[in-house]
Design a protein around this nucleic acid. Structure first.
Length: 477
DNA sequence: TTTTGAGTTGTTCGA
DNA sequence: GTCGAACAACTCAAA
């Protein structure tokens, strides 16, 4: 039996249940279908497309090493493309690993039925989550909305399945479908702006494994404290690799277990902050699955009436890292340049957008969606709703980040700000996170002219905080 | 059914 | 400078 293996967000050969099952049954035709219109309101943004281009190239190389190749197609309709590929190749089965975006779930359900009606076997698998979103439930069978009990229940189900081995060999079909060039997917921008991405990342399986190994060796031990320091590079940076499935969470889980056992953490590696972060990824998918409206609508309905402002100039200043708050600007510039932002700084910049500027969280979510290489509908939605206070397990209304204190606390030497906001690099650390409070002589010595070489603060944080508290008070039913 | 305890990531104020 | 309390009320999960 020849099987079409439909790659989606599982761009790897190892721990890939769809591929393994197909390879056991006979020849396989690996395909990737680029159909952005099927992602509804959330087609991949520019940074994600760049990553996807690189990752598909790496996947094709890996498949060729295994005696196979990746067949690409572009279109509007996955079903039509799959039926056409089946006709061309004589394949009698289609298999894939599941995606969990609401739009995709609905389409996949229809598609699977249609494939079966067309006489093709159609099966799907789980490659991207430790547990299916419906496996974890409260005692009454409903969805969980608080992280800690969710994760406790998830762990109580036992360790997730071990990762699957790579298929030993991939038999080629009697004839390959007509080739489509990767360039025809037009994933790369017409204007060359991807230098910063290229310098920061190595997309693909090999880069993912290297990243994981480096992280476990160097940063796993002090992770629970150092992960909050954007100046230290102590996070795993696995998010884009996980998003595209170049490595699976089961593999990360097992590698962490092996590392933990080898380093004397026989009991407590499961409770480690790093494993808990995998738990947050699971929780994000759980929430997206059970509350499919949340990419657009606040989970807490009363927030639909929040008096957000409209201020295109302020939004643009935030997007470009020109708010006048150094830690905020550093984060947004890191994002713009590398397609990624440190998690602590994501919280700071998000809090600034929604609480200091009173701009809608959706505007921030959209910007992140366009600029992140790890843009993931589940995680992005959870993060922004958390920051805005309208999501599950949301921050209490009075938790408003002070960008000066956050900067001092988590970038104490100022290395992070100096790197991303070089026009402030000569300022003494004392004033780095609040340049407007430095004396004229200090500013002059550092070559800083507020309002000229670096913006004055867009808003006064203390006043903005009061305004946010007042706005939140209007929500009381 | 009712009750109870708890809830990723913070800041400010006053003693 | 340090420390603890207050900051709303709500929702969820489990007993």
């Amino acid at each position: 039996m020849t099987t079409i293996v439909w790659f989606r967000q599982d761009l790897r050969l190892t721990d890939n249940p769809a591929l393994l099952a197909a390879a056991a049954a006979g020849p396989v035709i690996p395909v990737y279908l680029y159909t952005p219109s099927e992602d509804g309101a959330w087609p991949p943004g520019g940074a994600s497309r760049w990553w996807l281009h690189q990752s598909l190239q790496r996947l094709d190389e890996d498949l060729r090493t295994a005696g196979s190749r990746l067949c690409l197609r572009v279109g509007q309709d996955s079903l039509a493309l799959l039926l056409e590929l089946a006709r061309e190749s004589g394949a009698t089965a289609v298999t894939w690993n599941r995606r969990y975006e609401p739009e995709r779930i609905a389409r996949d359900r229809v598609l699977k039925q249609a494939l079966k009606e067309a006489g093709l076997a159609a099966t799907s698998h789980n490659a991207s989550l430790l547990r299916e979103p419906w496996e974890v439930a409260s005692q009454t069978g409903g969805p969980m909305q608080v992280f800690t009990p969710f994760w406790r229940r998830s762990l109580a189900l036992g360790d997730p399945a071990e990762p699957l081995p790579q298929a030993r060999s991939l038999a080629a079909p009697s004839g390959w479908p007509a080739p489509t060039a990767l360039e025809d997917l037009e994933l790369l921008p017409r204007i060359e702006w991807t230098r910063g991405l290229q310098d920061a990342w190595q997309p693909g399986r090999r880069g993912a494994l290297k990243q994981l190994e480096t992280f476990l060796q160097n940063s796993f031990e002090g992770y629970s404290e150092q992960r909050n320091r954007p100046d230290l590079g102590a996070t795993s940076r696995l998010s884009p690799h996980l998003h595209f499935g170049e490595i699976g969470p089961r593999e990360v889980y097992q590698a962490t277990r092996l590392h933990g056992l080898a380093h004397g953490h026989a009991q407590d590696w499961r409770q480690s902050q790093f494993i808990t972060e995998l738990g947050w990824r699971e929780f994000a998918y759980h929430l997206l699955y059970h509350f499919p409206q949340t990419p657009e609508q606040p989970l807490r309905a009363k927030y639909a009436g929040f008096p957000w402002k409209t201020d295109a100039a302020a939004l643009r200043a935030w997007q470009r890292g020109l708010t006048g708050y150094p830690i905020v600007d550093a984060g947004l510039r890191e994002l713009w340049t590398t397609g990624w932002m440190h998690n602590r700084v994501r919280m700071i910049t998000a809090s600034f957008l929604v609480k200091d500027l009173l701009l809608p969280w959706n505007a921030g979510a959209s910007w992140f969606w366009d600029t992140l290489v790890d843009a993931d509908l589940a995680s992005n939605t959870l993060g922004w709703q958390w920051a805005a206070g309208c999501g599950a397990d949301a921050a209490p209304y009075f938790r408003i980040f002070n960008p000066i204190l956050q900067g001092r606390k988590f970038d104490p030497e100022g290395h992070y700000v100096r790197h991303w906001v070089p026009e402030l690099a000569q300022l003494p650390t004392e004033w780095l996170h609040e340049p407007w409070n430095a004396s004229p002589a200090t500013l002059q010595n550092a070559g800083v002219q507020l309002g000229a070489t670096y913006p004055r603060p867009l808003v006064d944080h203390d006043a903005a905080r009061q305004e946010a508290l007042a706005a939140l008070a209007t929500l009381k039913d």
